[in-house]
Each structure stands twice: as structure tokens, then as C-alpha cells.
């Protein structure tokens, strides 16, 4: 199965329809295992049961960046290789990425609440994720603002790639800004000293969330392809009567006959 095979949207629709149920089932099974292992994991001696938020938070944070990476590759596909499905992939990924980023923010602030005493702290990591979230929203706004998807695709692709180049710079600046104001870091998230009893459930959950992304992404791409088909069918329907001859005598009958054909 190469990219060339998938270039044909019809073939993509057929293939993804066959793959999707399996993907969904695998996602569900992995989630069941992951959640079970997470529940079994011991409480942290400092953080108590709240540490288990990590099993949701970390995979979401990882996906928030991974999805931008997927969109960047898709944007290259749009700009360089002109792959017909590339901008569909990029467009479909944006809302999913935004949702994962939002979940990372939400779980992060819930996790921080017992430690900080507030739901939000301008912690360097959370702040970077917040900026990433804003960039996702901006990208979605761009897709929405331009009505013609193929015209929006190039603008969105450029913005995605610029964003990908900028993300490390933003991350670095935020870290610098944060340490400038707060010499002591407020929170250390596990770090490298993670115990095996945490590591295994975390890895399972990370894979489960990644599969969830792949499943949702494929489904969203199918929707986007179908939406574009509806759009082009509508445009064809709109242009039909422009060529039909006599309007005053019986456009209704004529429409009925062309509609049946």
C-alpha cells in the first residue's frame, strides 16, 4: 500500500472503510488494558492518587505535538508533492489536534490544582501547550474563513510549516521567560526517574491514544472527502440550468428529467 495507491480518493474511501472497524476495535482494547493497568498503578507518595492524571495527560501532550507533525508532513504533501489527499489529511487533523491539546491543558490544570492551589499557573510547559492550542485554533479559523477548500489548503499549509519551525523557538522563549521570572520550577512531571509500575501503563495509554488519533483522523478524512463531493455536486447542480435552453416554458420538467438521468 503506497501513497500512490491512496492518491485516488475513491480507493482511499474503500480501503479506510475496511480498516476503520479493526482500528476502532484495537483502540478500544488498548484503552481497556491501559485504563486497567493505570488503575492498578500505585499512588505516588507525594502526589497521592492525582498522579494517575498523568496517564491521560502525558499521552495527550505527546499527541498535541505529534498531530502538528502529521499536519506538517501533510502540508509538505500539499506544497511539494501536490498529493490530492494531503490537504484533506491536514484539514481533518487540525480539530483533532486541537481537542488533544485542549485535553492536555485541562488535565494539566487539574493535576496542578492540588500543588499550585490554583487551576492555572504560568508554568513553562503548560504555557507552551496553551500557545500551541491558540495556533491550532488559528489554523482552524483559517480553514473556516476561506470557503474554497483548495484555496485555503495552500495558505493553511504555509502556516502549518511556519508554525512547525516556530514551535521550538516559542518553546525556548517561554522557558527563558519563565525562568527569568520564576527561578524555581513549580512542577516536575515525573522526569526520567519514572518507575516501571508507572512506565508500562503510560506506554500502553500512549499507544492507545495514538491509535485513537489514527482512527479519528481516518474517519475525519472520510468525512472531509465526502463533504467535498457534496460541495462539487452542489456546484454542478447550480450550474446545470445556466446551459438549459428555454426557461419560461418548463424548467421544472427539464429539471426532473436531468435529475433522473
Amino acid at each position: 500500500m503506497s501513497l500512490i495507491d491512496l492518491a485516488n480518493p475513491t480507493r482511499f474511501l474503500a480501503l479506510s472503510a475496511r480498516v476503520l472497524p479493526w482500528l476502532a476495535a484495537a483502540t478500544a482494547i488498548l484503552f481497556a488494558i491501559g485504563l486497567y493497568l493505570s488503575a492498578l498503578a500505585p499512588d505516588d507518595y507525594q502526589q497521592g492518587a492525582t498522579v494517575k492524571i498523568m496517564f491521560i495527560h502525558v499521552p495527550n501532550a505527546w499527541l498535541s505535538m505529534f498531530v502538528w507533525g502529521v499536519m506538517s508532513i501533510a502540508s509538505l504533501g500539499t506544497l511539494v508533492w501536490r498529493h490530492p489527499l494531503a490537504d484533506v489529511a491536514a484539514k481533518a487533523a487540525a480539530p483533532i489536534g486541537a481537542a488533544f491539546t485542549f485535553l492536555a491543558l485541562l488535565t494539566g490544570s487539574l493535576w496542578g490544582r492540588p500543588m499550585w492551589g490554583t487551576y492555572w499557573e504560568w508554568d513553562a510547559r503548560l504555557t507552551s501547550v496553551l500557545i500551541l492550542f491558540l495556533m491550532y485554533l488559528g489554523l482552524m479559523a483559517l480553514w473556516r474563513a476561506v470557503e474554497d477548500p483548495s484555496r485555503a489548503a495552500r495558505a493553511a499549509a504555509v502556516l502549518t510549516l511556519v508554525g512547525a519551525l516556530n514551535l521550538p523557538i516559542i518553546k525556548f522563549s517561554v522557558d527563558w521567560w519563565n525562568t527569568l521570572h520564576q527561578p524555581a520550577s513549580v512542577m516536575r512531571m515525573g522526569g526520567s526517574t519514572l518507575d516501571k509500575s508507572f512506565l508500562i501503563p503510560l506506554l500502553v495509554m500512549a499507544v492507545a491514544f495514538t491509535l485513537l488519533f489514527v482512527t479519528l483522523h481516518l474517519a475525519a478524512m472520510r468525512n472531509e472527502i465526502l463533504r467535498r463531493r457534496v460541495r462539487s455536486l452542489q456546484m454542478m447542480q447550480a450550474s446545470r440550468v445556466a446551459f438549459s435552453g428555454d426557461v419560461s416554458t418548463g424548467s421544472r420538467q427539464e429539471n426532473a428529467s436531468t435529475g433522473a438521468a
Binding site: 447542480q237 446545470r240 440550468v241 438549459s244 426557461v247 419560461s248 424548467s251 421544472r252 429539471n255 435529475g259
Partner: peptide, 8 residues
């Protein structure tokens, strides 16, 4: 219908 847009 008179102006020929009833299909749209």
C-alpha cells in the same frame, strides 16, 4: 421557478 432557479 419563473427565473429558472427552482433547482437551486
Amino acid at each position: 421557478a419563473t427565473v429558472g432557479l427552482d433547482h437551486a
